[in-house]
Design a protein around this nucleic acid. Structure first.
Lengths: 65, 65
DNA sequence: AATTTTTGTCACATATACTTGACATAGGGC
DNA sequence: GCCCTATGTCAAGTATATGTGACAAAAATT
């Protein structure tokens, strides 16, 4: 899986580090890093939490063609 | 978690059983049933596969307010 | 009514998402 | 130079998504 630059971009827009987002939604920094780097496959619940924190939708951050 | 009636509806629209969808995307019938009944929390990859099979987007089938 | 399909549910096994703690590195400010 | 933040990564543990096989009960079909 490739990197998810859309998450990185949405983070930048809110000026949040990976750690900031991770703490805001109650996961570890390492997990956030792994998701952003495409190292694994988060659950939908976690995806929703990331989306809400970054003011994006599932389609905007996690859809793929 | 509550039932996901949007999946059920999308299935009905394509006249597919839980088994049909499950086989089409390479998961078991029981897993498909559990997801539709809200018994757990699928991975984003699986959600994407369900969406593509049922011609819906992530936001349409898996977003929650 | 009998048969087949569809759905619900269970117990147990396996794969993998996620945690924890640690160490390394690059960059910026003092 | 040193310190602090942000990111990357690893090994080992825990939690949970998913698979497998089975049984039962609706719901549809004949």
């Amino acid at each position: 899986m490739g990197k998810n630059l859309r998450i990185k971009s949405a983070r930048a827009e809110k000026d949040m580090s990976q750690k900031d987002v991770a703490e805001a939604i109650g996961i570890t920094r390492q997990t956030m890093n792994a998701i952003e780097n495409g190292d694994y496959n988060p659950t939908i619940k976690l995806c929703r939490a990331i989306c809400k924190e970054l003011d994006r939708t599932l389609d905007e951050l996690f859809w793929e063609d």
